[in-house]
Amino acid sequence: MFKGLQGALSSLGHRVIEGIWRIGAGARLFSYICFYLPEIFKRPRLIVREIFSTGVLSLLIIIVSAFFVGMVLGLQGYNTLQKYGSSESIGVLVALSLVRELGPVVTALLFAGRAGTAITAEIGLMKATEQLSAMEMMAVSPVARVIAPRFWAGVISMPILAALFSMVGVLGGYFVAVPIVGVDSGAFWSQMQASVDFRDDIVNGVMKSLVFGVVCTMIALFEGYDAPPTAEGVSRATTRTVVNSSLAVLGLDFILTALMIGA
């Protein structure tokens, strides 16, 4: 009994220490990335390539999910709002929920699953097959050549994907509200425009997705860079990327929302 408790406590302690250690190591990696910032401007081509694999290849999943999310919001919103005789407000509901919350958050979750795992697996395998070591031995810093371009590509891609998600989602809501349930098109847009504020809603949404971009990409990169160079290690790291990114996104979303509403 006592022994079991002791074991549980000591494993808890180990996990806490491990967690703190990893946060510190992640911060160090981040500082290296910032240190190599000038290198990146010398070779924008590297970032372009990474934007292709993180951003462009995520386009399909983002657009399709956004359209469906928008349509569902439209249907559910209509169902509820028509009871109060205010089905024209459907545009407001769809736009505000997308721009403020669903756009940045769902995009970040999809990004973690689509692009984050790819980054972790790729870097983990590059490490396992000694490609990173080989680069170091060629006097080329893997952080400058491999890690940093992926980081900046992720930070650039995320707000763009989130903005696309919101826009396509609004179109999805429009598609349900106007042609299908028959809300007036003018009322749909004008009510939306009257209630969605550029600075308070749209800019804040973009800022959120920027923060999520930094966090999700950083987690994916760190898990890959830190993965034990074995098949099992890489697969565990990939799982951790999704779990940690999702937790970080949802937790940070709360903090950011509190800050933005408070401000």
């Binding site: 721009v99 903005a163 919101s166 396509v168 609004v170 425009q193 969605v196 749209i202």
Partner: peptide, 11 residues
């Protein structure tokens, strides 16, 4: 998308 959000969705 950002322009669309700003002009069509936002105010």
């Amino acid at each position: 998308a950002i322009f669309g959000l700003a002009l069509k969705v936002g105010n």
